[in-house]
Design a protein around this nucleic acid. Structure first.
Lengths: 336, 336
DNA sequence: TTGAAAGCGTTACCAG
DNA sequence: CTGGTAACGCTTTCAA
């Protein structure tokens, strides 16, 4: 409970000097600096965050809003953010804003308005229009990881391109009957922006290859069990079974692989599956995929945000990362 | 940016009265209360958290420390905590303290010392002795979800009993050669306390049933791929293959199921597997398991913590939840 | 029932 | 290079 006054007294200086010595800002003789530091150390002095915040206007805290925390991508981004903030000595306040919940409404209405942070990172938030308004009302820098809009800086992977390359990979292997699995409006969850972009990439590729007639999108929850369920349906019917599947993400792709195995459909000889993400399970299922590294996106978002906090006039940025293709053995040429 | 002074001015009262009217503490005539409220509303007044904290000593913020955020159990607990805090209007500051990292050291050394929270929830932390010291130094109420010790209140499932019932389930079905899969010291990660308790429960059951000779523990990372890897090894060898497996948790159990399927070993006719958790994938794999509901543990931890914050003299509590057995079709009597 | 004023623990400005 | 002092925005006695 020692305050800066105690430290100052012990070091035989004024509070002002003690403050300067400790924070490193302003002139202090090397001599007194050492003395003050020692006093602080001896007393186990820890500055009161609230007081510092009041005086400086900086909370030393970053807010993070995301719709889920239990899905791979989000958890990874969160870890990336957390780790990076740690090196900067900043705290992280988490807001779990699940779409369509009253909790989300409260977060947007009350919590964010409190501005208990110097900046905000929004991960895959897909804010509704009025939510977007509330966000900009805050008047603090915002960086979004994934997402659309030009209000805030964005860090993301090029989803459209990733989906196109995934699709082209199958086309190059000789597939024509390629379905796109996952995403869409189901059970009240809205069609996520990323998912739409990926679907669009698939569509474009199919059309460019003259395969428009084969285009089809099978909606699902964007989870592993979700992918499993619709894949089981799709693959259960022998007629109309595609030879290739582009999944909206690895979780869905893996669900499909598990479904295929259960049905005795050999992957890749009878069915090729490609995902997007490079999920932690991808290797175990030998899944060919387009890799993104969410941790790095989280880290990049933090650096970007800190830059914008330091210089609010800094222009908005859009940092698109490139997904690297990792070919494993879930894809092959279709058997004749 | 409107402050309470502005609100007071607009309502024609003093700051003191405005404060009372808004916070609801102290006498204020119904009339002025309404007037103040209206003024606050009109001005879009939001109290400054830092200032409130300085004046009251309460941060309206709860800290959460956990070693992982990307594993099912932890993510679920986190959601439970978050949701409950939301209803109380409290913020949540997250500290991701992965074992053996320098980040963890910083969290325990610097971050927690700042006390930017009114109380702390430690989830599956298994703190080392010196970390435990640092934790108690903080001087704020702490509740731990899972874990040992008597310094803090605890919310947990009865792991020992859960593991015993899982084991007994297999024994009752007629199994004798039952292995315990998962957990242990591997790759630097320390033997988690929960895992040890579950192993102990398995051991006790085996011994009580006179099956001590069959006892064996196969270590693994406590993840789905971790379970897959060791199960593939274990089951690949026809001799010495057990007829039953008790997994340290559902993730490991599911990894084992996937491995068994790949090896063409029928579950449950050739191999019974039981897990603990009721993971989100459990249903999809028809896994028999002992259910715990981490969300509820998170919620319970919050309520407990708030009670201790309100009354610091409140005695420490230990809230053991009962795991319910859910029998699906991953277990059956061994074929003769 | 209300208001004035004294903190809460820092930082930052302005003299010295 | 250092010290006094006024903020920062709110709550909370203490009087009135």
């Amino acid at each position: 409970m020692a305050g800066i006054a105690d430290v100052a007294a012990r070091a035989g200086v004024s509070k002002a000097t003690a403050s300067r010595a400790l924070s490193g800002s302003g002139y202090v003789s090397e001599d007194t600096r050492v003395r003050v530091r020692a006093a602080a150390e001896a007393l186990g002095y820890v500055p009161s965050a609230g007081a510092v915040g009041l005086a400086t206007g900086r909370t030393q805290n970053i807010g993070v809003v995301m719709p889920y925390v239990n899905r791979w991508f989000f958890a990874e981004v969160l870890e990336g953010i957390q780790q990076t903030l740690l090196t900067h000595g900043l705290d992280l306040t988490l807001y779990d804003a699940k779409p369509g919940t009253t909790g989300r409404a409260r977060i947007f209405g009350d919590f964010l308005a409190r501005k208990r942070f110097d900046g905000l990172i929004a991960v895959g938030l897909d804010p509704a229009d009025h939510e977007l308004d509330q966000l900009t009302q805050i008047g603090r820098p915002i960086v979004s990881v994934v997402g659309a809009g030009d209000q805030a800086s964005i860090v993301a992977v090029d989803d459209d391109s990733a989906a196109r390359r995934a699709t082209q990979h199958l086309i190059t292997l000789g597939h024509t009957d390629i379905a796109f699995l996952g995403g869409g409006d189901r059970g009240g969850t809205q069609w996520a922006h990323v998912d739409q972009q990926r679907l669009a990439g698939y569509r474009r590729s199919m059309e460019e290859a003259g395969l428009a007639e084969f285009e089809r999108h099978i909606a699902s929850d964007v989870t592993l069990p979700g992918g499993y369920a619709v894949a089981a349906d799709l693959l259960g019917d022998t007629r109309g079974r595609p030879t290739g599947i582009v999944a909206v993400c690895d979780e869905v792709a893996i669900g499909a692989i598990i479904a295929a195995r259960r049905l005795g459909i050999a992957v890749p000889s009878a069915l090729s599956i490609v995902g997007i993400d490079d999920h932690e399970f991808a290797e175990m299922f030998s899944l060919t995929t387009l890799q993104q590294i969410p941790r790095e996106q989280g880290a990049a978002a933090v650096e970007l945000l800190l830059a914008e906090i330091a210089d609010p006039a800094r222009p908005r940025t859009r940092e698109l990362m490139h997904a690297r293709m990792i070919v494993r053995t879930s894809t092959a040429s279709p058997s004749v």
